[in-house]
Amino acid sequence: MKNRPAVIIPLDGSETATKAFGAAEAMTKIMEAMLYIVHVTEEQLPEEELLKKLRISQIEVRDFAVRQIIGKDAVGEILRFAASIDTQMIVMSSHGLSYNPKRLLGNITMGIVQRAINPVMVIRPDMENLPGPDWKPQKMLVPQDGTPTAAAVMTQVYRLAELTGADIDVLSIGVVGRRPPTEAGAIPAPRYLDHPRYDWTAWAGEFIERFYAQRPPGVELRLYEREGELANVMIGFATENNDDLIALGWHGHLESGRAETVKKLLRETDRPVLLIWSRE
């Protein structure tokens, strides 16, 4: 079981949770994976009843399995199950049964995104164009601040781009009110431009070089530089450039004062957000 790539979609029986089902099916197809529909419950249900409860009427992927896990700790059970198989991605709606648009994420999604080491794709249920089973991102937006942490997401992004044939827009954003990153190996946008014609070219070359070493042949990569508030710029840029997906590296912390950009993005974007965890 470990060897077969897997996509997981946790469902709790709510209508909102199923909004991510199309994206999960799409990712399963793209990755030629096995789709695991996971439901954590305290009481075992017969399969037919379970599918009904989960509101699944039609499944378009060939290989799938429905896993009913008996337990109380839904987040823990889902993550334990994810660890037991070759999970490539967890796809889920931002909210489930406890849907409250005022809250950033539902309880289970909140737990999963913070604790999962696997990439997690979050779908807002109120998204205008919900991805369907045949969804195939053509362009992906990957904001980068020049840090190795942010750059680490590229492995996953490249894999997805290679499978989908998507182009990648790398976006560097200049911000007022923040210090340049101090992480070792960071290459923030230049603070000094003695002669912009040389410095920008060199910086862009260096920036892109960071990603080119791993880039699969055929994947197109473009670098953009914008200024402003991070989440706003990302959202605006994705709209302007028709990016189908925003992929972000992060450290898995949503507590107060942290990951403000991720929070704002999750609240306001109308595109799927792929969160890729990396160690702090």
Binding site: R179, A189, L193, E225
Partner: peptide, 14 residues
């Protein structure tokens, strides 16, 4: 007023 910033000020202002 722009003391902390991640890139050059002219880049930010345009």
């Amino acid at each position: 007023d722009y003391e902390q910033r991640t890139t050059s000020l002219d880049t930010i202002l345009g």
